[in-house]
Write a protein that binds this DNA or RNA. Structure first.
Ligand SMILES: [Mn+2]
Ligand SMILES: [Mn+2]
Ligand SMILES: [Zn+2]
Ligand SMILES: [Zn+2]
Lengths: 152, 152
DNA sequence: AAATAAATGATAATCGGTCTCATTTACCTT
DNA sequence: AAGGTAAATGAGACCGATTATCATTTATTT
């Protein structure tokens, strides 16, 4: 479910509103993230942006993703393949990730039950919890099936 | 709560039992992990081992940690500082981590409620879940206090 | 259109982690 | 207890992801 044109416009305005320039690379990166679902790495984003702005350098991707994360527009995720991955932070859509160790497919899941737990953790530890990451690793239905056929 | 001498002995035997040599570095690394609580990085382990076995190379630390993880004796953790951290896998002590973004202090917490959820996730997504990581980031009581004094 | 500070691209540098290979060592076997 | 053997080690090259530097370009303000 890609973002609507209006939602994309909002993102761009948020950026300008905070005093950051809306440059070519930034515009394209925002559009790319908004129009494509998924959890691309910096490298994948770079490859995609280069199709439209061939000169774009890798450093710009890192700088932009860092900025977008600081602005709260994207979320960075650790998917255990020694690179960061990113996704648009659609507000009100808090979810977690299930990663297939067979084919690297990423499935999303929400867990409202778990969210309630944060309060318990806070009172037990006296920490102020700002953010949490939960990733589950396992086998997707396809890979689980293949594994079963191959005999554990 | 460091491990007892007998528990350490068990670890060493487990290693030999599986056909791996109990070498100087391996012995020291096991003892270091068992006797010190915490969540050291490979670099921290290296520094500690070098006090006792000055010649020890970094590659040996990585190789040993990898072996210990494969043997199920240690667990590797992602604490968002772009290096892996490790801890002895005391059996039956499944817990998660709360990381203070102010001072990097790591607190442990268990969450039996959450563990139940894994089954729900499995039936909702049809994935076979093998393992999950949950980390919460926030401010420890001290850092939260300091932040409050400094005025948000 | 000119002025200005921010952003970019090329490139070097850093850093965690892996690989290679000659040398050493633990653990059999005698 | 010495000798044989494969596994483990240490030194250093290597790698891929990310960050830093700096001269040039560009989005915005005038
Ligand atoms: Mn997602
Ligand atoms: Mn722990
Ligand atoms: Zn799969
Ligand atoms: Zn703290």
């Amino acid at each position: 479910m890609p973002l609507t044109a209006e939602a994309i416009q909002k993102l761009k305005e948020k950026m300008k509103g905070k005093g950051f320039k809306l440059t070519g690379p930034r515009r394209k990166i925002l559009e790319y993230l908004a129009e494509n679902d998924g959890h691309p790495s910096a490298q994948e984003i770079h490859a995609a942006i280069r199709q439209m702005l061939p000169g774009t350098g890798m450093a710009t991707i890192y700088r932009t993703m860092d900025l977008l994360a600081r602005l709260g527009l994207v979320r960075a995720l650790v998917l255990n393949d020694n690179r960061l991955h990113y996704e648009i932070d659609r507000d009100g859509d808090h979810h977690h990730h299930l990663i297939c160790t067979g084919c690297r497919r990423v499935e999303e899941f929400a867990s409202c039950t778990f969210e309630h737990l944060i309060g318990d953790i806070e009172s037990a530890t006296r920490f102020v919890v700002k953010r949490h990451d939960l990733e589950a690793y396992g086998l997707c239905p396809d890979c689980a099936h293949k594994a079963r056929c191959a005999g554990e």
